[in-house]
Structures are given as C-alpha cells and as structure tokens.
Design a protein around this nucleic acid. Structure first.
Lengths: 122, 122
DNA sequence: ACAATAACTCACCCGAAAGTGAGCCTCTTC
DNA sequence: GAAGAGGCTCACTTTCGGGTGAGTTATTGT
C-alpha cells in the first residue's frame, strides 16, 4: 500500500477527475457497492453482529461482509463496540447520525424507483 | 440475447437476490455507473448533444458516452429528439420529469456528503 | 483432545465495467 | 477527391469488484 505509484491507466485518472469535478461522484461510489446499504439498513434495524448478519444474508461471503463493515465504520456510518472481550470477541454495530441520515435519502431513492412516472405530474 | 440461460456464477445470483430483497438495489445499480449522473446533470443544464457532451468531458470515450446515453433514454430519464434529419443527424437530449426528480435526490446526496457530521445535531 | 464459536484475514479466480482505436453513413466544404 | 461533421457501433484489452475456501485467535463444552 506504500510502494506502488504507477497509476497511469486513465481508468484511475477518470475516477479522480470525476471526484474533482463533483463530490457527488464520491458519494455515489461509496454507497453503491453491493450489500452496503442493505447492511446499513439491517444494522439500523437490530441485526447488529457479524454472525447475525451472516445468517441474515447467507449468500454473502465472510470476506465481503468484513470488508463492507470496515468501510461503513471507516466512513463514519456505523460504530463498532466491543461487547465482550472474551475470546470469541463479541462486537456490536450501531448506526451513527450520519448513517441514519443517509438511510433517509436511500429511502427517498427507493420511493422514487417505485413511483409510476407514466402519468404527468405537477 | 435470448439463448443463454446458464447464469450460475453466484455473482449474478447474488445480484438477483438483492434485487428481489429490495428494489432499492436496482436503483443503486442504475445510478452508480460512472459519468451517468454527471451526464444527466449536464443534459439538464443545457449540454444536450453528443458532441457537446464530448467536449464537456474530453476524457470520456465515445463508447461509454453512447452507452450511458442509451441507458438514460431506456430508463426514461432523458428523451431523445431528432432535430435535423439531414445527414449528420442532429439529436437533442432533454430530461424527463423522472430524470429531474432523480436529480433532486442526487442533490440531497451531495449535500449529505458535504455536511459536517462531527458536531452533534438534532 | 477436539469441535465449535465470533470475527476476521489471506490467496486465488472469474466476469463485468470501462478504456482505446477504428469504422460507418451521407452530405457539404476546401 | 479528401476531409470533416454528428452520432454512433464493433473488436479488443485492462482493471477491479466480488465470489470461494481455508487459516487465525483463545476459550469453553463433551
């Protein structure tokens, strides 16, 4: 993570360009990874542990679950709390205000998606 | 496009599962492709032709531009109008009500992203 | 002694997203 | 008669997201 500086492939360049042009592109990239918003929703609604989430979404791999949780924590959308420091360390996740605010917008998106746009409107 | 039924790679399966669990996943997938929302924004603000968009985003390839425009049209976010049926066919794009409604939510997302969540709030 | 348990992490692989270059179509201009 | 204009589309290549399986940690139940 500290030694590779090439980064010239224009794929990465374009990503940076978009970030620079408008910050919304970063937000879109942050919220679109698969499972992420679903996990945020689950955590907010009480499914707040690694193993509980695993049960809730059996087809989701440990690998990706761990990664998504780490992202959510890193972006300040959920908070991680150690419940029991015993050996199988138990951990509890809870949404931050930021995370809850995001969910509101996500709800709006869902609403938008389900709306019938065939008839004209105000 | 009509003959391939295999679809067993679990990558695709999971995508379908997510769609089935919550429609918001489809929306997220639809809005997250690179350039898409930026293009929608541009079109809404008067940059409404293929070549104009090309100029506005020089690093975006024709290939992807064409594809994104087609998606936007297919999803009913923008409308395509033939301006001049002369040989270099001129075409004009304009956002639909649905497209404008989406931009509103995208704005909310941007706002959310730019907000300072470090201090507590109501 | 050995499986199970909670929460991860590592090495590997495959398909999809997105980038590049060229081609096409007909009409007008140099 | 060649080039350029406008709007695409095709073939090819690279990057990266996300999937799988196995390994790690220490303690407890059988």
């Amino acid at each position: 993570m500290a030694s590779n500086l090439k980064e010239g492939t224009s794929n990465a360049q374009n990503r940076q360009l978009l970030s620079a042009w408008c910050s919304v592109n970063d937000v879109l990239r942050d919220i679109s990874p698969r499972w992420k918003m679903v996990l945020l929703h689950g955590i907010t609604h009480g499914v707040a542990q690694f193993s509980r989430l695993k049960q809730a979404f059996p087809t989701l791999s440990d690998q990706v679950l761990g990664q998504r949780l780490a992202e959510l924590v890193a972006e300040g959308l959920v908070e991680k709390t150690v419940v029991a420091a015993t050996v199988p360390t138990q951990i509890h996740y809870a949404p931050t205000p930021k995370g809850r605010a995001l969910l509101t917008i996500i709800d709006a998106l869902q609403h938008w998606g389900e709306q019938d746009w065939s008839r004209d409107h105000p």
